[in-house]
Structure formats: structure tokens, C-alpha cells
């Protein structure tokens, strides 16, 4: 059964159309990334799935069940990590997790809570009140909260926003582990490195429209080109090849940009450099960031 099916989703806030007729499906056991610049409509989609926002039109199905305010069965298999940190006034981390288990219908969940606290490095902070915790601890607590009921689908809304490098890397490992143990994951991010690292498939969203969807690797391949740097022993021969983008006389190197469909051999054959003259060939594959820039047209838009 399809974990998540979004069909013709539209969300308007007054005159502003934040989500414009978006449809996509997530496959079982994958990490799917929704990418887009800030304000692209990612969180509006997440909020519609969690019923925090009511869609203007369209439908959302979780494992075949329609997502609605009062559909408890659909909500019970969903875990959500919101983008913004949550405070819980007077309660300790352990108490928060106990209450949260209860909200999802689990009366005694001590073992799993202990497991999660250990797993997320929060065990020694279990009796701390939430307001005494650092930002990183709060972020990890949010993840623990989302996992108390072992959801089949986990939504991560910008899980690593404002998180340091070390924690980010361990969060990534954790997300992969979750996928490997059978959880389907939808994550939103505007860090392309994160999407490239983690996501099996991505959907690119801009101004509320889903403009591209597909396996991450395929998208990169389709939308980017490779850079080939050739280092020579002797001085650079004259070269008018159309793919030449830069030559460096001092380093005695030449840089070519070729599409992913063109072979290296093909390029070398065209260049006709003598083999013994070549010291090194370095190939740099395209990155998701390049694909993204190509899709959105303007690089400033994604970092703004």
C-alpha cells in the first residue's frame, strides 16, 4: 500500500496560493525529499498532512486512509517532527515522551522511551525540563517524540535547521537507520547537500508548484554535466574544443564540461592529446545543487 498519496493539493491563505495543485506519491521504505527555497510551500504541505492546516482542495491519503481531522487511525501511524522547536513548560523530557505516547494510544511505553532517549543521547537529560535544554537537545527530543509510537511514516520538516555539523551527521545516520528498519520518511529541506546525501527520491517545489520529481541520482544526471580536468606534462596545445571552459597555462591543465551522456573516451578521442603527455584526468560529477540551480534558474533564490 502506498504510504502517502497527495492528490491535487491546493492551499490558499487569503489571496496567496501557497500550494498550487501538487500531486505526488511516496513509496514504501524510501526517503523522499521535498526541496525548495524558503517559502516555497513545503511546510504548508506538511501541515496539510498533519491536519494542522486544512487544505483548500485536494486529498491526502495515508496507507489508503484519507487524512482528516477526526481520522484517528490515519493519524496514529504518522510521526511528525515540526520545523520549530517546541517548549513544554513544566515537564521533563521523560514526562513529555510519556504523555506523547499516551496521545498515540500507548499506555505504558517505558522501554521504548528509554530506548529512544539512549539512542538520541538524551538519557542523562531525561529529568531536565525542556526549557533547560539546549537547542540541539530540544531538536533530538522532537525526534524522540515523533517516534514514541513507532510510526510507519515519519515527516521531518527541516530536521537539521540550526543544527551543528556533528549532530547533523549523526541525525543523517539515524534517518538512514530508520529507513533500513522499515520506516518511510518524507523530509523537507533547503540544504541540497542533505537531500543529495539522504534522499532516494526528491521533488523540487518552487512558488507552490512541484516542478520536478524523480530519483535523486537520475535528476542529477539529467540536469547536470560533468567537469573533466586534464593535466598535461608539456605545455598546453592549442585547443578550440567547444566544451573547453578554462585552461591554466601555469598548471598546464584544461577544464572541460561535458554532458553525462558523453563518454570520457569520446572527449579524449576528439582532443587527440598524445597519451604519454597526460599526467592526470580528474572527473567531477554534477551535484544536486547544480541541478537545482538549473531548475530554478536563479541561484539567489534558493539561498535567500
Amino acid at each position: 500500500m502506498i504510504p502517502l498519496k497527495v492528490s491535487n493539493l491546493v492551499k490558499k491563505y487569503g489571496d496567496l496560493e501557497a500550494v498550487k495543485n501538487v500531486s505526488f506519491e511516496i513509496q514504501s521504505g524510501e526517503i523522499f525529499g521535498l526541496l525548495g527555497p524558503n517559502g516555497a510551500g513545503k511546510t504548508s504541505i506538511i501541515s496539510s498532512i498533519t491536519t494542522i492546516e486544512k487544505p483548500t482542495s485536494g486529498s491526502i491519503e495515508l496507507f489508503g486512509g484519507r487524512v482528516e481531522r477526526e481520522n484517528k487511525a490515519a493519524k496514529a501511524i504518522l510521526g511528525v517532527v515540526p520545523q520549530e522547536l517546541v517548549n513544554h513548560g513544566f515537564f521533563s523530557a521523560f514526562e513529555v515522551l510519556e504523555f506523547h505516547s499516551g496521545y498515540y494510544g500507548i499506555r505504558s511505553n517505558k522501554k521504548h522511551i528509554e530506548f529512544l532517549l539512549n539512542k538520541l543521547g538524551l538519557w542523562e537529560h531525561r529529568d531536565k525540563k525542556i526549557k533547560q535544554m539546549s537547542g540541539g537537545m530540544k531538536r533530538r527530543l522532537l525526534i524522540a517524540k515523533a517516534l514514541v509510537h513507532q510510526p510507519k511514516l515519519l515527516l521531518l520538516d527541516e530536521p537539521t535547521a540550526g543544527v551543528d555539523i556533528e549532530l547533523r551527521a549523526s541525525l543523517w545516520d539515524f534517518v538512514r537507520e530508520l529507513r533500513d528498519s522499515g520506516t518511510t520518511i518524507l523530509l523537507t529541506t533547503h540544504y541540497l547537500e542533505e537531500a543529495e546525501e539522504l534522499c532516494d527520491r526528491v521533488g523540487v517545489i518552487n512558488h507552490g508548484k512541484l516542478i520536478k520529481i524523480g530519483p535523486t541520482k537520475q535528476l542529477i544526471k539529467e540536469l547536470t554535466s560533468r567537469q573533466v580536468a586534464i593535466y598535461l606534462k608539456n605545455k598546453l596545445p592549442p585547443c578550440q574544443h567547444i566544451n573547453l571552459i578554462k585552461s591554466n597555462a601555469q598548471e598546464k591543465s584544461m577544464l572541460f564540461e561535458i554532458s553525462n551522456q558523453t563518454g570520457i573516451g569520446e572527449l579524449l578521442a576528439q582532443l587527440k592529446f598524445p597519451m604519454e603527455d597526460i599526467i592526470d584526468i580528474q572527473i567531477q560529477e554534477g551535484r544536486l545543487e547544480d541541478a537545482f540551480v538549473k531548475l530554478l534558474g536563479d541561484k539567489n533564490e534558493l539561498t535567500s
Binding site: A73, V80, P82, Y103
Partner: peptide, 16 residues
Amino acid sequence: KYGGELEDYKAAPLSS
């Protein structure tokens, strides 16, 4: 509302 916890109730399987 201030802490953001209220959204939890809405996402959880709690009826109105």
C-alpha cells in the same frame, strides 16, 4: 500555543 505544543494535539489521534 506559546510553546508550540498545541499543534501536537491536532496532529495526534485526539478528537475535538
